[in-house]
Design a binder for these strands. Structure first.
Ligand code: ZN
Ligand code: ZN
Ligand code: ZN
Ligand code: ZN
Lengths: 158, 158
DNA sequence: CCTTTCGTGTTATATTATCACATACGCCGA
DNA sequence: TCGGCGTATGTGATAATATAACACGAAAGG
């Protein structure tokens, strides 16, 4: 399975992998993967798509967690800060990181047809972006690459 | 002057160039660069930095234009749709396009120290991103590349 | 036992963005 | 000349996204 498949892969498998990786990562780094945080990551992984903070909040509320925005935002911030999820700025939405563990510049391919989001990554050190930054004397902190377009399935349909 | 200078260039010159280019572009394409729209572009060009919609709105209001959010958002949408400005998603802010005319994927270098934003661009056809999209069978519509870090000036200061 | 730290929860508020509707103006065909 | 039409501008109201400020409780460490 490629890291770029849009529709044809085993969600339950990648979900389980994600959760295991997250647990491992938190153990290693002394982070607390508390019930809310864990559940939010599960929700993102289950949905396997970008979810808004309020969408997450609704689900948390329905499950007996806190019902106010900070509950969702704090859990999401934790996941994002620790590389377990990403925020997709273009959509004001969050998604589980498909490549946890590696320090990477995520690249999102966002289908405007079906809303599916595929993640891959870019090594910023080499390549055009690194070159651009070097030439400008700019020190890269973090990068966001978000590409909107149509996924293979939606292209066929059209 | 490079298109990537952060601090040391002639603002009044690049502002004038921008406005002339916009007028030209609107004439060519039958677009109406109305007073509000033109003034918003001027404000972005004068500021020479990313400005929030409400910051723009405050200035418009002070100058006798409409005082409600849609006034600013509609003008900004016009400019963005027609390639005269960009929205920087990471900042929920807008900036005049530094390279109007060319159809390009803008790349923003955002300094977290001083807030300055430099724009350059990427040709999506070739390069790593095009390659990634091709491999996934993904048809690129538009792309957003936003890099946060420190500009040369702020690096020295640190 | 006391203090500190962290996580969770709450209420209230700030910030960003859109909806819905009214008016005005230029254009064009009847 | 008139009426319809598209487009731009303006308004008040509201939606969607995000943070501030504070209280409480559990766990860790002295
Ligand atoms: Zn990732
Ligand atoms: Zn699709
Ligand atoms: Zn541009
Ligand atoms: Zn700087």
């Amino acid at each position: 399975m490629s890291d770029l498949d849009f529709h044809d892969h085993d969600h339950s498998a990648c979900r389980a992998t994600l959760l295991r990786a997250a647990e491992q990562r938190c153990r290693d780094k002394g982070l607390q993967l508390t019930p809310v945080r864990r559940r939010v990551l599960e929700l993102l992984a289950e949905g396997h798509r970008a979810m808004g903070a309020y969408e997450v909040l609704d689900l948390l509320r329905a499950e007996g967690f806190g019902s106010q925005p900070p509950v969702a935002y704090r859990a999401l911030d934790f996941l994002v800060s620790n590389g377990l999820a990403h925020k997709i700025e273009r959509l004001n939405a969050f998604i589980a990181c498909a490549l946890p563990g590696s320090r990477h510049a995520p690249v999102f391919l966002i289908c405007t047809g079906c809303g599916t989001v595929a993640e891959t990554h870019l090594d910023l050190g080499d390549g055009r972006l690194g070159e651009i930054a070097d030439r400008a004397g700019f020190e890269i902190g973090r990068a966001v690459v978000e590409i909107e377009g149509r996924c293979p399935t939606c292209r066929e349909a059209a």
